[in-house]
Simulated assay, not measured.
Amino acid sequence: MKTLKAIQAVAAAAALLVGTGLSHAQSAPAAASSPAKKELIAKLLQVQQPGIENLSRAVLQGPLGNLMQGAGAALQQLPPEKREATAKSIEAEVKKFAEENGPMLRDRAIKLAPSTIGTMLDERFTEDELKQLLAWLESPVNKKFSQMGGEMQKALTEKLMADTGNTLDTRYKALQQSVAKQLGIPARPASAPTAPAPKK
């Protein structure tokens, strides 16, 4: 996932997979399932569906990202005149794979959610706790907090890079030189992580 929203959605789905970190999960065993409880679980799964879909995308994109990274390194071993065409061919094949398999993974994740996440919610939460959880997830406060995710990440990233960027840059260059020395090649100047210009 390339955006904080996607990461948050996966995190939300993952939180449900482990029964969430709410203190309610530590309460006494939940009562046996009732029609009302099953309906609440169905609503919770509906609210969490974007997170479940993002989780399925992450399952697909993780290995594809690794494959593309390895292919990028291997492309450098090809003759220069073959690199561009080969790169385009690989990108097209990976894109086709994602387009063909993404919907299948998404549909399976949604179908499996009731028997996995739903079962865990049923076992670990009482009907009252499920009502509280659903009320929180649908609350304006939670929605407002979720919408701030990208802004909060950006602010922290900028501050972190301003605070550590020079140190990280120096250490990155030292690492680059060490790796180049071990490989017996001259170290080339590379773009290291740098601190963004401070905002005034």
Results as ranks from 00 to 15, higher is better:
149 G>M: 06
174 A>V: 04
87 A>L: 08
93 E>S: 10
133 L>R: 01
62 G>E: 09
157 T>G: 09
169 D>W: 00
62 G>L: 15
77 Q>C: 08
72 G>Y: 12
89 S>I: 03
148 M>W: 01
80 P>T: 02
139 S>T: 13
183 L>Y: 14
86 T>H: 01
147 Q>H: 00
196 P>R: 01
53 E>H: 02
96 K>L: 11
76 Q>D: 06
125 F>Q: 11
127 E>D: 12
169 D>T: 00
60 L>W: 10
52 I>H: 11
188 R>H: 07
52 I>Y: 07
171 R>F: 05
193 P>W: 03
57 R>G: 03
162 A>E: 13
190 A>C: 03
107 D>N: 14
89 S>A: 15
165 G>M: 05
180 A>Q: 12
172 Y>R: 10
97 F>Y: 14
165 G>A: 04
100 E>G: 01
142 N>S: 10
142 N>A: 11
114 P>R: 08
60 L>G: 04
116 T>W: 02
125 F>W: 12
125 F>I: 08
116 T>C: 04
147 Q>S: 13
152 M>N: 11
162 A>F: 02
70 G>Q: 15
155 A>F: 00
129 E>W: 02
55 L>V: 06
117 I>N: 07
133 L>A: 05
60 L>S: 13
73 A>R: 08
164 T>D: 12
195 A>R: 04
53 E>L: 08
64 L>I: 07
187 A>C: 07
96 K>Q: 15
86 T>R: 01
94 V>W: 04
74 A>C: 11
90 I>W: 05
188 R>M: 12
108 R>L: 15
65 G>I: 06
84 E>A: 02
164 T>H: 13
72 G>E: 15
88 K>W: 00
112 L>G: 04
173 K>C: 02
150 G>L: 01
75 L>D: 14
158 E>R: 06
147 Q>W: 03
64 L>A: 05
166 N>W: 02
65 G>C: 12
